[in-house]
Design a protein around this nucleic acid. Structure first.
Lengths: 159, 159
DNA sequence: TGTAATTACTTTACATATCAACTATCGTCA
DNA sequence: TGACGATAGTTGATATGTAAAGTAATTACA
């Protein structure tokens, strides 16, 4: 049997211990490389992937969101949000306003400048996605999603 | 049609634009969550994921490797290696030695302490892998790997 | 042979991620 | 009402990742 592509890429001498391990490494490696690609695109617009993610979430919501809510949707730990929002605010892409009802809460909103920027990225990002996965058939894409969603069911319980 | 699991997780109001985009997000999200899991395990041994990765690569090689070679196998940018190796050296898990033939090269080797630590992680890591993906059949795992490897073929050219 | 290009690595600067600990605010309930 | 616990966010410390620039050593070649 020919050496697998991943095995070759990582210069491993011995076959993987199991299809299980190989699948795991394939997931991590594919995600890493795709993230790098997207990161390069964002950098052309002076954004980091996380920063873009915040903007996209806010646009999707269409209205201000509390910090914690954004952090939850990003799967990001809370402390990191502060600095991230600081920078976005300094770039005038988002604005922060403390809630008057509950003064613990800070609402974050997209500025017109931020909205424009995230809209500007739609087309190039769609083109990148197409480039990255466009060579898979619709059936393959659906099967890939199904398998990955099934994979994640192992995380449902315990934390 | 029922809302997809990912769509629900991200609290998206509208269906994904395309199976393509959904697959992409599934890849990124699955990898992110699995990485978090592994990261937690490593932390129990006072290691970060990158640090473990260095140790594993060195053990796999069985002999000292230059910094650049390690960085390549990790897909990591070179500057980050310096600090990473600094910390591993301070923990006495690796040792550095400048090559006498080519004095630009620094060879990195696993110390006995480092080797012991990485061996110690084999069993818990295999158990984690089993927990994360053990509920997929062998056929599914192979299909998942096949699809991900096919996905990555789009990266073959241009950088 | 001596100069220019390359290579291996380091340094610096900055963005991000984690954890632990802290502040301010809110709710609840005795 | 007043103290306790929960919640929202911030701060600080450490590790990682990226880019850009710098240093030292080697190679290529005129």
């Amino acid at each position: 049997m020919a050496k697998s592509r991943l095995q070759d890429e990582l210069k491993k001498r011995n076959p993987f211990e199991s299809p299980l391990h190989e699948a795991l490494l394939n997931i991590l490696r594919t995600a890493d490389q795709f993230e790098n690609r997207a990161g390069r695109l964002f950098r052309e617009y002076d954004l980091t992937p996380s920063q873009y993610n915040v903007l996209r979430i806010l646009r999707g919501e269409g209205q201000p969101l509390p910090c914690l809510e954004i952090a939850n949707r990003m799967l990001q730990v809370v402390p990191a949000m502060t600095g991230l929002l600081d920078r976005l605010e300094k770039m005038e892409l988002v604005s922060r306003e403390r809630c008057t009802q509950d003064r613990r809460v800070v609402y974050v909103d997209l500025t017109p400048k931020g909205k424009e920027l995230v809209n500007q990225l739609d087309q190039p990002l769609a083109a990148l996605n197409q480039k990255l996965l466009g060579h898979l058939s619709a059936t393959e894409l659906k099967e890939l999603s199904r398998l990955l969603e099934k994979a994640r069911t192992s995380l449902d319980h315990d934390t």
